[in-house]
């Protein structure tokens, strides 16, 4: 996925909206390269179950490095449709391809318009640079 076409939270999650062939909206959620670099050497991830409700700004999982834990925050309200469970076995895709194979969950959003309130790529980069 091209990061420039994604939306971002200030807690470093990205989200991508797509319309499925069935005409439903589906949001793919991941963690940015910046966050992964900050976390440094990931060792463990905890992701939700399919069917779980998530709410914007609330934690849906956790990612751990050796000496830090970070919550993963949902960018949108909705229901978890799919989980990238392969990450619990092998975290390499998350660190090597965070905007692609390292996606975390797919959510069926109850209010897709929430995405409009998130940062675009430029704004997100600016936030990261200003630290």
């Amino acid at each position: 996925m091209n990061p420039e076409q994604l939306r971002f939270t200030d807690t470093h999650e990205w989200v991508h909206l797509e319309t499925t062939p069935e005409g439903q909206t589906l949001a793919t959620v991941g963690l940015t390269d910046f966050a992964i670099e900050q976390l440094n050497d990931l060792v463990y991830i905890q992701l939700p179950e399919v069917g779980q409700q998530v709410r914007r700004g609330e934690a849906f999982g956790e990612v751990e490095s050796v000496k830090a834990v970070s919550d993963l925050y949902s960018p949108l309200d909705g229901e978890v449709e799919e989980v990238n469970t392969s990450l619990t076995q092998d975290l390499d895709p998350l660190s090597q391809d965070p905007f692609g194979a390292g996606w975390l969950i797919k959510v069926r959003p109850s209010n897709p318009a929430q995405v409009e309130e998130l940062m675009d790529y430029q704004a997100y980069r600016k936030m990261c640079q200003e630290g």
Binding site: V43, Y44, E64, S65, V66, K67, A68, V69
Partner: peptide, 9 residues
């Protein structure tokens, strides 16, 4: 597995 512990979490 120190992330379980109080000094981190």
């Amino acid at each position: 597995l120190q992330t379980r512990e109080q000094h981190i979490r």
